[in-house]
Design a protein around this nucleic acid. Sequence first.
DNA 1: TCGCTCATGTAACATGTTACATGATTAG
DNA 2: CTAATCATGTAACATGTTACATGAGCGA
Lengths: 184, 184
Amino acid sequence: MSLRHGLLGLLDQKPATGYELTKSFEQIGQWAWHASHSHIYPELRRMTEAGLVEVVEEQSRGRKTYAVTQAGRAELRRWMLDPAEETVRSAAALRMFLIGSLEPDDARAFLRAYIDNTDDNLARLRAQLDEAGEEWRADPLAVGRLAAERALYVLPAVREWAVWALEQLDGSERVEGEGTSRRA
Amino acid sequence: MSLRHGLLGLLDQKPATGYELTKSFEQIGQWAWHASHSHIYPELRRMTEAGLVEVVEEQSRGRKTYAVTQAGRAELRRWMLDPAEETVRSAAALRMFLIGSLEPDDARAFLRAYIDNTDDNLARLRAQLDEAGEEWRADPLAVGRLAAERALYVLPAVREWAVWALEQLDGSERVEGEGTSRRA
DNA sequence: TCGCTCATGTAACATGTTACATGATTAG
DNA sequence: CTAATCATGTAACATGTTACATGAGCGA
């Protein structure tokens, strides 16, 4: 149930409305945890009932600003420091596992697209870090900042891997009837 | 619905029983996609009904060996090359986003544990690559091999990032009453 | 024969998605 | 006044988890 903890984490930085949280998750969703508004609103209601968050302001047309409570902060910390809670579900990572199931040409195209994608992401991140520089300079641990910096380390590494994988593919061009089960 | 595609990918390598697939997912689950047997068995049944896989052997006590069909292979390829299908849900990655919500001491402990963990994983992977060397030498694209090599690129990068983050923490030791909302 | 691992499954529940529904505010 | 965006929600459905249930085979 990590949506809950994602919301607690965001609200711990700054009280926010469901709409704002939804927007934040559009960022987070790309790298860490995907969630849509239709999931977020009911969860906020349940969290209110559970005493983890509270409505601190209610504006026109039902717009509610939520803030984390003491209990919520405690739960967030408990979860952050609990090493047990691990689940990954990443379609992208799963595809990496299964590249071998593609025909060599498909695999090559896949890896090339992946490399291009990595380059795009890197460019976008750098722009983002430039742009948000003001806001983030003061606070290296701001949500997003840490994650962006992390991507700056990780993306070049996965790019190198993809290049390596591409070389493997070219080096071990499929020999007809070689005997592996990979062909369709 | 990527469990389905994970299963197709594994079965494309080699026919297997539900039990064997469950074991495979214990590996995959660590990095890419988590799934448990109680999810896998019903899914295999549904995939059989959908004609994506078929039972190729039935042994004692209901032990069934599944293989992917032509339709299954087509579906696997479609999914592999479909760039749309992206969702990430990683508790570990989410935590990275939220380190800023921890007290500096907790954050330091968190990052140190993370670095240790990275070292352990690296050691384990290297052992695994040594051990499986025979099997994998012939086939650089074997499931697992690619993923393991990828981790070999990525883990040192995330380790570096963690060290950087730790330095940030030490450099920007929290000044009392500084005014951010991060304190509990 | 006792306990472990192999091996498969179901049922109740929790979580997450897609499509639907509604209406306020604001910029042009 | 009109279209886009803001803003919140529900309902039907799909997916995933936990606990329960069963029993075969095998090694000590």
